[in-house]
Design a binder for these strands. Structure first.
Lengths: 135, 135
DNA sequence: CATCTGTACTACTACGCACAGTACAGGCAG
DNA sequence: CTGCCTGTACTGTGCGTAGTAGTACAGATG
């Protein structure tokens, strides 16, 4: 039974990420933390745009990316819905992108001259939110 | 005794990061891994630009950032040298930026639907290179 | 002096992002 | 069918960032 969802998304003007990416990240995170479940309907392009006082094209762009990545499914004329989980990337591609993320994080730790052990410990704690999915 | 250094820096055209940031990251990483030591001289702005076949302004921009962050010291008319280590950021600012880095990493793990434990294990391994400094 | 060093400008180009407006196809309630 | 909702696909415009190009100046050195 598909539920409609208020989807409390927050857009921060101070965030260095472009608005469309903030939406993509936000929705993906809500799916990852099971705050959104397969079958749930998302706010309409125009509705979310009005709610966030941004351009509808920006929302559409974010939704299009989420759809092409397999997180959302479009039902023409009806709306967008959270898709059922499936393999979205090849293992090679996934490992390659994880490698990039790791390198970026190591670069930041070096840039801040931050104790690697503390960084790892904090990250371990931060990753807990993703484990709730299978709880 | 200040050593001169060939500084094998690699600039990848496929890298999404701007060239100047690649230089900044590269130099910072070499300092963090003790491949560059305090007192070492860096290649000249024009020299490195020619070696990498990029614009001297781009190198100067990267060097200026590294200098303002305290990684390099400028001796007018002589060149740029790796500075002696010191506290470069306030603890609050450092924690805030580490927080951003952690959030960005968690977002990527969620985006890739990557097993958090594996991500943590791989990161642990990747962070080893930074520990050599105090070895 | 000439020649190296870093630094500071200006001007131009290319690209990404967001905004604005318009248009079209499909679903659905009246 | 009409009207209103849905996603989708365009065009164009403005703005900020990155990179290139060229010029100029101060300090150090031989």
């Amino acid at each position: 039974m598909p539920r409609s969802h208020a989807l409390m998304l927050q857009i921060a003007t101070g965030d260095p990420r472009p608005i469309s990416k903030q939406i993509v990240d936000g929705v993906r995170m809500k799916i990852a933390t099971a705050e959104l479940s397969p079958g749930d309907q998302l706010p309409s392009v125009r509705g979310l745009a009005q709610q966030l006082t941004i351009n509808p094209n920006t929302v559409a762009k974010a939704y299009a990316e989420l759809t092409s990545e397999g997180w959302l499914e479009s039902r023409q004329g009806l709306g967008l819905f959270v898709a059922t989980p499936r393999q979205r990337l090849s293992n090679g591609e996934r490992d390659r992108r994880m490698d990039e993320a790791i390198q970026a994080f190591v670069r930041e730790v070096a840039a801040l001259d931050y104790p690697p052990e503390r960084a790892l410990a904090r990250l371990d704690r931060a990753l807990q939110v993703l484990s709730r999915k299978s709880a």
